[in-house]
């Protein structure tokens, strides 16, 4: 598949837009459909698409395993961190009202960071699972 010119060019054209759409879904989730989970899956799908066309090793150079594994935990920690920030500022766990002077602005801030945490963990997990499954065939079939 690596020598297929049409696929490579189409992928090159499409992937930036898929990533842009993921960002749109992430940051427009407050106003329209979408949110962290969907955005994370779409972003992971863009990298998986890249890996399918350009090969797993190229994708692993662009998004290294170490980064993916860090993302896995960083998202959950960020989410829980927002909760503890609420505690530190005098509210309950995951209380967003205290995160800013104005309660509504605090809610906005809390929801924003929580959604970022969800997106980071979800895209990390999806990518990691794909990497692990895709690399499994290597042992039996050699390079492909």
């Amino acid at each position: 598949m690596r020598h297929d010119l049409v696929l490579r060019i189409v992928a090159k054209l499409l992937i930036p837009f898929i990533l842009l759409f993921a960002l749109y879904v992430q940051f427009h989730g407050d106003f329209g459909p979408g949110g962290g989970f969907q955005a994370g899956v779409i972003a992971a799908a863009a990298v998986i698409f890249y890996a399918l066309i350009y090969g797993l090793d190229t994708a692993r150079r662009v998004v290294p395993d170490r980064l993916v594994e860090t993302m896995l935990a960083a998202g959950v920690l960020l989410y829980a961190g927002v909760g503890f920030a609420g505690l530190a500022l005098g509210g309950n766990f995951l209380d967003y009202f205290v995160l800013a002077a104005d309660p509504v602005a605090g809610q906005h801030r809390g929801i924003f960071w929580v959604e970022v945490g969800v997106a980071v963990t979800v895209s990390g997990v999806m990518l990691k699972i794909f990497y692990m499954f895709a690399a499994r065939g290597r042992g039996a079939d050699g390079e492909d």
Partner: peptide, 16 residues
């Protein structure tokens, strides 16, 4: 919450 999409408000805030 100031978030027009109620689904997001429920998911991220009310049901955080």
């Amino acid at each position: 919450t100031g978030v027009p999409n109620v689904v997001t408000a429920v998911l991220a805030s009310y049901r955080g």
